[in-house]
Simulated assay, not measured.
Amino acid sequence: MKKALSLVIFIIFSIILASVENKVKADICHEGLGNCNQCDERCKAKHGPTAQGDCNNIYQICTCNYDCGPPPPAPPRRQCSGGTGLCDTKCGNPCCNLSCARKYPGGSGFCDNSLGHTLLCQCQYPC
């Protein structure tokens, strides 16, 4: 009886362990990337360094295999600076901000008085 009970406990433990192990393993996703030119490089660029590009030599089609899950974070965007001229003394920062947004996509601005009495509209925008 003790041997049978031990065997049942062992089987239950094995089933639990196997189900937990399957949850830990990441699923593999596949995406077609067209022709085979630089297949592995394009796959890694799109889905991260652990992705693997595989070229089907018969059909010349690139398949990208990668861990399913959130994509790798995008590289930070650089910020560039520009300007739109003098600030309107009556409107100030709101007008400067609007002017920067019109001139530079995603831009924002502020009035800068670091040159003494002259207010210049300084802009920052992604580039």
Rank of each mutant, 00 (worst) to 15 (best):
Lys3Cys: 14
Leu5Gly: 09
Leu5Tyr: 08
Leu5Asn: 07
Ser6Lys: 12
Ser6Gly: 14
Leu7Gln: 11
Leu7Val: 07
Val8Ile: 15
Ile9Trp: 05
Ile9His: 03
Ile9Thr: 14
Phe10Gly: 01
Ile11Cys: 15
Ile12Met: 09
Ile12His: 00
Ile16Trp: 12
Ile16Gln: 13
Leu17Thr: 11
Ala18Tyr: 07
Ala18Asp: 05
Ser19Ile: 13
Val20Pro: 00
Glu21Leu: 15
Glu21Met: 13
Lys23Ser: 13
Lys23Arg: 15
Lys23Met: 13
Lys23Thr: 13
Val24Pro: 01
Lys25Cys: 08
Ala26Val: 10
Ile28Leu: 13
Ile28Ala: 08
Ile28Thr: 15
Cys29Lys: 10
His30Arg: 14
Leu33Tyr: 04
Gly34Ile: 00
Gly34Glu: 03
Asn35Phe: 00
Asn37Asp: 14
Gln38Asn: 14
Gln38Pro: 00
Cys39Asn: 08
Asp40Cys: 09
Lys46Gln: 13
Lys46Thr: 11
His47Ala: 01
Gly48Ile: 07
Gly48Phe: 09
Thr50Gly: 01
Ala51His: 06
Gln52Ser: 10
Gly53Ile: 03
Asp54Thr: 11
Asp54Trp: 02
Asn56Asp: 15
Asn57Gln: 12
Ile61His: 08
Ile61Glu: 11
Ile61Pro: 00
Cys62Asp: 02
Cys64Pro: 04
Tyr66Asn: 02
Tyr66Cys: 03
Tyr66Ile: 03
Asp67Ile: 06
Asp67Thr: 10
Asp67Val: 08
Cys68Ser: 03
Gly69Ala: 10
Gly69Val: 09
Gly69Leu: 09
Pro70Arg: 09
Pro73Arg: 04
Pro75Leu: 11
Arg77Gly: 02
Gln79Arg: 07
Cys80Lys: 03
Gly82Gln: 02
Gly82Val: 02
Gly83Met: 03
Thr84Asp: 06
Thr84Asn: 09
Leu86Cys: 00
Leu86Ala: 05
Cys87Arg: 01
Asp88Glu: 06
Gly92Gln: 14
Pro94Glu: 10
Cys95Gln: 15
Cys96Ser: 08
Asn97Arg: 12
Leu98His: 12
Ser99Gly: 07
Cys100Ser: 04
Arg102Tyr: 07
Lys103Tyr: 04
Tyr104Gln: 01
Tyr104Phe: 15
Pro105Glu: 04
Pro105Ala: 06
Pro105Asn: 08
Gly106Asn: 06
Ser108Asn: 14
Ser108Gln: 13
Phe110Ser: 12
Phe110Gln: 10
Cys111Asp: 11
Cys111Tyr: 08
Asp112Glu: 07
Ser114Cys: 00
Leu115Asp: 04
Gly116Ala: 06
Gly116Asn: 05
His117Asp: 01
Thr118Met: 15
Thr118Gly: 00
Leu120His: 05
Gln122Ile: 15
Cys123Asn: 07
Cys123Val: 10
Gln124Asn: 15
Tyr125Trp: 13
Pro126Gly: 12
Pro126His: 09
